[in-house]
């Protein structure tokens, strides 16, 4: 066995031992999910609904319901969601294992992810874009009888939507053995239109707006009518900063002499900008890790219970008398 593989085996052994220990040391099990049955489409003919939708519930809900009525069938443990929780937990660990080293488990997680997510986006594209925005505009009658019965009767075919359809067909033409060049036309159309659009929107929104927002007074008058030196200084730094950074972005001037020095100050401003953004971002990233670890500890291992999902279990007295659910 290669030394590297040995490490992995040891790691897995530790993990397995911990899981087993979790099972025996803290009784009451873990990683179970519960659901609440909600009858749907209830009417006079179907007082119990025509079908049932299961919504997420907590163990506390379930125990409470069992306590008040042992024969209840509204709340129940859910095998499929329990399985889901376990799979999600293992996938989380598989991905995290990548920071140690690339390994087959990560590759499995990666392969699953690519497959399901590519399909997810395609399904979304079909049901959220093609169906309402293409079929819905071209053949509203068809949709009304098929997938969107709520579509208004006043919706008539809009022939303008033939354009994207034709463009789409041209785009797919590249799959055919001849005339693949035709697929460049829709691309040219798309790129051309968006160039025009962005040219205007950037000049309008970003360019002019940023200039306008930077036009500030360097002699700020406070409420009492006096000179507000502090605000004026802040404004001065702002204006000088913007101008220096702009000088840095000049392409036709070499960064020498006065220009060089100004550009240097511009870089300093940029560096402070970047440092600030970095510092801010760290916070968000840590929260992301925190939520994953919370998932592992709370939903899967049941080590902590900050949102009182299982508190009633404790109160009911048949769980964790020793510790575990403070």
């Amino acid at each position: 066995m290669k030394p590297e593989n040995r490490w992995w085996v040891i790691l897995f052994a530790i993990g397995a031992v911990l899981l087993i220990a979790r099972w025996f040391v803290l009784p009451g099990g873990f990683g179970r999910a519960y659901v609440r049955a909600v009858p749907q489409a209830v009417d006079a003919e179907h007082p119990d609904g025509q079908w049932v939708v299961y919504e997420q519930a907590t163990m506390a809900d379930y125990l409470e319901a069992e306590r008040t009525n042992p024969d209840q069938s509204v709340y129940a443990p859910s095998p499929s969601r329990t399985l889901g929780t376990w799979i999600a937990a293992f996938l989380t660990l598989f991905v995290l294992s990548f920071v140690i080293r690339d390994n087959p488990l990560y590759k499995i997680a990666e392969s699953i992810f690519i497959g399901v997510s590519a399909a997810y986006w395609m399904v979304t594209g079909f049901w959220d874009t093609i169906v309402p925005n293409l079929l819905g505009k071209l053949a509203p009658g068809l949709l009304r009888n098929w997938a969107v019965p709520g579509l208004g009767d006043d919706q008539h075919p809009e022939l303008a939507y033939l354009i994207p359809l034709i463009l789409g067909i041209m785009l797919l033409w590249r799959l055919s053995p001849v005339g693949g060049w035709i697929s460049r036309w829709p691309m040219a159309f798309i790129i051309g239109t968006f160039c025009g659009l962005r040219l205007m929107s950037f000049l309008h929104a970003d360019f002019l707006t940023q200039i306008r927002n930077t036009i500030v007074s360097l002699y700020v008058v406070d409420d009492g009518g006096g000179f507000d030196a502090w605000q004026s200084l802040k404004n001065l730094i702002l204006v000088v900063g913007v101008l220096c950074c702009l000088v840095y972005f000049f392409f036709s001037l070499e960064h020498k002499g006065v220009v060089g020095n100004t550009a240097r100050v511009g870089i300093w401003f940029l560096m402070i900008t970047f440092g600030a953004a970095f510092g801010y971002t760290v916070m968000g990233r840590i929260a992301l890790l925190a939520i994953r670890i919370e998932f592992l500890m709370d939903d899967w291992l049941w080590l902590i219970d900050p949102t009182n999902k299982r508190l009633l279990a404790d109160a009911a007295g048949f769980f964790l008398p020793l510790f575990g659910m403070g």
Binding site: I211, S217, L218, V220, V239, L243, F249
Partner: peptide, 27 residues
């Protein structure tokens, strides 16, 4: 790129003009 630099000149010019005017106005 030279054309882009012209754009930056416009920004600089407008900015300086605007700031001077605003400052004078409030002063």
């Amino acid at each position: 790129l030279k054309g882009q630099d012209m754009g930056k000149m416009i920004v600089g010019g407008l900015l300086i003009l605007g700031v001077i005017l605003t400052t004078l106005a409030s002063a």
